[in-house]
Structure formats: structure tokens, C-alpha cells
């Protein structure tokens, strides 16, 4: 079991999904993968397909249009998986709360493991969130 949890800790692959954010958080998530911050140091690679990913990095409030897609993407990911909600919107819906087309935060729809607050959070904060997620992911069976 030691080998597998070591391997999980060393190579969590991320999938980035925009559930309806204003694009501010997305730019910061992408910035975390640029040469300056380089998440590949920790073995984190941005994947295109949910079938290949272990960590779902979701940004923005869940709007009506993306709710079904978010659930489907979450179900397409292989077990074990974890979800990181990036940005205040992803936590609670922030400035958009009460709007007619908003469901609220990500955790209204799928279980969330780590919350990263900020509007938008700094890349350092996102990296910290991902590292916390790795710690949690390593323990999942």
C-alpha cells in the first residue's frame, strides 16, 4: 500500500473546468502552470480528458447550464478523485448569489475537498490548495 500512496502523492493530474466563472480565476489557474510557477515540479500535469485526471480544479459559481455537465465530468473521472474549488464564487457564489441562474457554490452539486478563497486567488494560493488536495488524495482508497 505504501508504494501506491507514494505514487498518488507524486503524480496527481489535474483537470480544469470553468463552471461559469468570470474568467479571472481561470487566468490564475493557467498562470499556475506557466514557467514562473511550474506545477510540473510536483508532477501535476494539466490533462484534457476527465478520464485521465485525478483532481478536478473547478472555478466559478455553478450556473444552470453547467450543472449537468459538471456532474457528468465528475462521474467520468476514475476513482479515487478529489475536487478543488478555486475562487470565492466556487465556494459560495459570491457576487452572483441570488441570481436567477445560479445554483450557488460547487459543493451544492458535487462534494468538494479543498476550498481556495480569493477573488481571484493568487497562483501561490492555488498551488497551496493543490498541495493540500494531494495530501487528502493520498489517503483516499
Amino acid at each position: 500500500m505504501g508504494l501506491i500512496s507514494w505514487a498518488r502523492k507524486k503524480s496527481p493530474w489535474a483537470l480544469h473546468f470553468n463552471t461559469g466563472s468570470c474568467n479571472g480565476c481561470d487566468i490564475e489557474v493557467v498562470a499556475a502552470f506557466t514557467p514562473r510557477f511550474d506545477l510540473e515540479r510536483f508532477g501535476i500535469i494539466l490533462q484534457g480528458s476527465p478520464r485521465h485526471a485525478d483532481v478536478l480544479v473547478a472555478t466559478g459559481p455553478v450556473v444552470r447550464q453547467t450543472k449537468d455537465r459538471l456532474v457528468r465530468i465528475y462521474e467520468q473521472m476514475p476513482n479515487p478523485k478529489c475536487v478543488v474549488a478555486v475562487g470565492t464564487c466556487a465556494i459560495s457564489g459570491a457576487p452572483f448569489t441570488g441570481s436567477y441562474n445560479i445554483h450557488g457554490g460547487i459543493d451544492k452539486v458535487i462534494p468538494v475537498d479543498i476550498y481556495v478563497s480569493g477573488c481571484p486567488p493568487k497562483p501561490e494560493a492555488i498551488i497551496n490548495g493543490l498541495i493540500q488536495a494531494i495530501k487528502k488524495y493520498e489517503k483516499k482508497q
Binding site: A7, D54, N79
Partner: peptide, 10 residues
């Protein structure tokens, strides 16, 4: 590590 992790995934 990538190889082992993928082997252990669902």
C-alpha cells in the same frame, strides 16, 4: 510514479 498511479486507478 505516474505508471504506478495509473495502474492503481479505477
Amino acid at each position: 510514479a505516474d505508471f504506478i498511479k495509473l495502474l492503481s486507478n479505477e
